[in-house]
C-alpha cells in the first residue's frame, strides 16, 4: 500500500436505512418459518406430508439466506446460474440414494 492512500480522507457513508430494514425483515421471515416448523413438528403426525412441508420450508429459508444474505440475487446472471445449475445434481443424488435405501429396506426387513 502506498503512503498516498493512507493519508486519504475516508468518507463514511450514512447507514442505508432501507437496506438494513430489509435485512431485518428477512431475519424476521427466517425466524417465523422456523417457529412454524416447530408448530408442525408437534402437531402433525410423521409421514410424507410432514416431510414435504419441512423440505419446502427449508428450501424457502435457503432461498432467503442465499438470495438476500449472500446477495446472490443481486449478482450477474452468469454467476447466479453458475451456482444454481450444479445444485440440481444434488436433487438427482437425493432421489437416487433414497430410492436405493427404500429398496434395501424391503430386502432387509420385509422377509421376516
Amino acid at each position: 500500500m502506498s503512503h498516498h492512500s493512507e493519508e486519504q480522507e475516508i468518507t463514511v457513508l450514512p447507514p442505508d436505512k432501507a437496506k438494513i430494514k430489509q435485512l431485518w425483515t428477512v431475519a424476521g421471515i427466517l425466524g417465523l418459518i422456523t417457529a412454524f416448523e416447530f408448530l408442525i413438528a408437534f402437531t402433525m403426525h410423521h409421514g410424507t406430508g410432514k416431510t414435504i412441508i419441512f423440505v419446502v420450508m427449508t428450501i424457502v429459508k435457503a432461498g432467503y439466506i442465499v438470495g438476500e444474505f449472500m446477495h446472490l440475487r443481486y449478482e450477474v446472471k452468469v454467476l447466479f446460474w453458475s451456482i444454481m445449475v450444479p445444485i440440481t445434481f444434488i436433487a438427482w443424488m437425493l432421489v437416487a440414494f433414497l430410492y436405493e435405501g427404500f429398496q434395501l429396506s424391503d430386502i432387509n426387513f420385509l422377509r421376516f
Binding site: I90, M93, L94, F97, L98, E100, G101, F102, L104, S105, N108, F109
Partner: peptide, 12 residues
C-alpha cells in the same frame, strides 16, 4: 446428508 437419508431409509 444424502447418505444419512440413504441409511435411514434402509432401516426400519
Amino acid at each position: 446428508l444424502v447418505t444419512y437419508g440413504f441409511v435411514r431409509s434402509a432401516h426400519q
